[in-house]
């Protein structure tokens, strides 16, 4: 079997797992990334969200073989403590996390959304984010953070 190679946040990685393994497990267990995480394994909650070629996808149901050769980006690729992305900074400024388990999906989904919709209304933000679940009830802060980030990015 030919070795699978994936491109994550600008780096290439050879994959040990079988090709049908969901991308999430490769990112978490092989690459040691701490952005995407397991929430449901059913594409229902969005905690595992990463971007593939700029589109937000659920890595818990995406076989790794399907994303070879594509550009995968994760939360840790968005920014750093010294240089956070506009969304990361807005989430920190608004304290838009309680347990923070959903935060990865929120930021990765919002980033893909803002690329397509740079100046969204609050209603558009809520509609776009509706498929992503937060159980702590941080919704107000997430919406406010996305609004702020949109302004900062425009």
């Amino acid at each position: 079997m030919a070795k699978l190679v994936i491109n994550v946040d600008g780096s290439r990685h050879a994959v040990k797992a079988a090709g049908d393994t969901p991308l999430l497990y490769v990112l978490q267990d092989e690459l040691g990334l701490t952005g995407p995480r397991f929430g449901c394994g059913l594409s229902q909650c969005g905690a595992c969200t990463v971007q593939v070629n700029g589109k937000a996808i659920r890595s818990c149901v995406t076989p790794v073989v399907g994303v070879a050769g594509k550009k995968i980006s994760t939360l840790q690729g968005q920014g750093t403590a010294e240089k956070p992305s506009a969304l990361q900074k807005a989430f920190i400024d608004h304290q838009a996390a309680q347990c923070g388990y959903c935060t990865n999906g929120m930021i990765m989904a919002a980033d893909a959304f803002l690329k397509k919709t740079p100046n969204p209304t609050e209603a558009e933000i809520k509609k776009a984010m509706n498929p992503w679940l937060c159980r702590c009830g941080t919704h107000y802060r997430i919406v406010a953070a996305i609004k702020d980030a949109a302004k900062a990015m425009s």
């Binding site: 978490q28 267990d29 040691g32 990334l33 701490t34 952005g35 995480r37 397991f38 994760t74 939360l75 840790q76 968005q78 920014g79 750093t80 403590a81 956070p84 990361q88 989430f91 920190i92 304290q95 838009a96 996390a97 923070g100 388990y101 935060t103 990865n104 930021i107």
Partner: peptide, 27 residues
Amino acid sequence: VPRVEVPAKALGEFEYVQYVKVPGMVH
């Protein structure tokens, strides 16, 4: 005072129990 662990959570650097790794660990 802003919550001290929120930056790590927003940056994807927070070490949840889900990310604990021990040498020789199996699943």
